Simulated scan of single mutants.
Amino acid sequence: MSTIIKERVQNKQKIHEFSNKIHEANLDNIEDILEEYFDHNAVWHGPHPINQLDGLENITEQFYKPLLKSFPDLEKNNFTLLSGSFGGGEWVSTSGHFVGTFENDFLTIPATKGAVWIRFGEFHKMENGKIVETRIIIDLLDLMRQAGFKFISALGAEIVNPGPASHDGILLGESNSEESAKTLKLIEDMIYKGLRDDYREKGMNDMGMELYFHDDFMWYGPGGTGTTRGLKGFMDYHQGPFCQGIPDYLGGNHITRYAEGKFCSFVGWPSIYATHTGNGWLGIPATNKKITMRVMDFYRRNDNLIVENWVYIDMVDFLLQLGIDVFDRMKNSKYVFK
């Protein structure tokens, strides 16, 4: 095993260990736990309204302690974990759910006193066995829905999305480099040929998505969009309305992107630049506003096609750019669907 592969495996095992320790965490020991895994000068980028935290003390006090106060029995259940290098940096990415009893308000979202499943995707940049940078998207819009505040009538199914149907998303060892390269090529072709070039030249109806996605693939989208099944469901309930709403979107601006085995992940912060010139997506009339989108994607390939795709978007940040402040609407119970 090469030195870089050995380091990568150690990084993955470190992040897996950290995720498991969250269930042991409380307000008294969280500082010690975080100090074991984070560099003191780490930078944390998260969803609006938290956004950016500099240094371990701020990460502890402004994210992890409020999270544990709101969900005292918190578990962090990863269903994918993979690693790779990009731009000279080493990264580990995970996705899954924070699961816990919603005992106290979180970011002013009212506590339900019941169990909640909070979708998340995250990327950790590693140096010398420590986390020096984190990018994490927590699906706050879906947490609001679970708390009884629904601002958008999603076209897709609003469910607790599962992990990989293959039950093999936690990649703790060394992966086959040929399989990894095959996965990365498929994803990059889909992004840069299908979603970008073919869309620009031929339009939404001739993007060649059948070259990349299985007919019955599962697309697990963010709050406001929901989950879709198959190419038709994906085009009808997400991709079609999305392209109509922001037809000039420019994606693929990734901070990191890599594949391991049959899995691939990327994050852009922002990943998409666009103008909201069309009606339809999320049921919102065109605002003609310039927008950006923080996006994470996780994929699973089977044979030569994508069979599962988990998508995380900072929807609260995106909606705020359109003049829709969901925290204000929640506080004042405005425009809430029942």
Rank of each mutant, 00 (worst) to 15 (best):
L155T: 15
A181C: 06
D189E: 15
H124D: 10
I137Y: 04
G156C: 04
V99Q: 01
E90D: 15
V132H: 01
L172E: 03
V116E: 08
V92N: 01
F123Q: 05
S95V: 05
G96A: 05
T101Y: 11
V132K: 04
A115Y: 10
I138S: 02
S166G: 14
A115Q: 15
D142G: 06
G129N: 11
A147F: 02
F120I: 03
V99D: 06
D168A: 08
M126L: 13
T94Q: 14
I191C: 04
G163L: 04
E188T: 11
F151H: 00
I137A: 03
I159V: 13
S95P: 01
A111G: 05
W117M: 06
L140V: 10
E178M: 15
G96S: 07
I191E: 12
F106L: 15
I138V: 01
K125I: 07
A111W: 01
V132Q: 03
E103S: 11
R145Q: 14
S175E: 10
G156Q: 02
P164C: 02
E158M: 13
D189V: 07
F151G: 01
H124N: 14
R119W: 08
D139E: 06
T134G: 11
R145L: 08
V99F: 06
W117G: 02
H124T: 07
R135K: 14
N104C: 07
P110L: 06
L141C: 03
I187K: 07
E179D: 11
I170S: 01
T94K: 08
I159D: 07
E103G: 02
E122Y: 06
I131H: 01
L107R: 02
G169T: 06
F120Q: 04
F123K: 05
D142N: 14
V116Q: 09
D189Q: 15
A115H: 12
R119E: 11
F120E: 03
I152P: 03
N128S: 12
L140E: 14
V160K: 14
N161E: 13
M144Y: 05
S166A: 14
I187A: 12
E158T: 12
T112A: 07
D142L: 08
F123L: 05
S180R: 07
G121E: 12
L141M: 10
S93A: 15
H97L: 13
V92K: 05
T108P: 06
P164G: 02
G173W: 02
A111S: 10
G114T: 15
A154I: 00
I170V: 14
A181P: 08
F151E: 03
G169S: 02
T94R: 09
L184E: 12
N161Q: 13
F102K: 00
D105P: 05
A111T: 02
R145W: 13
K125C: 12
R119D: 12
E133L: 09
A115C: 01
F120D: 01
P164D: 00
G173D: 09
T112D: 09
T112Q: 09
S177C: 12
E179K: 07
I109Y: 00
V160A: 08
G163C: 08
E122G: 03
V92W: 07
I170Y: 04
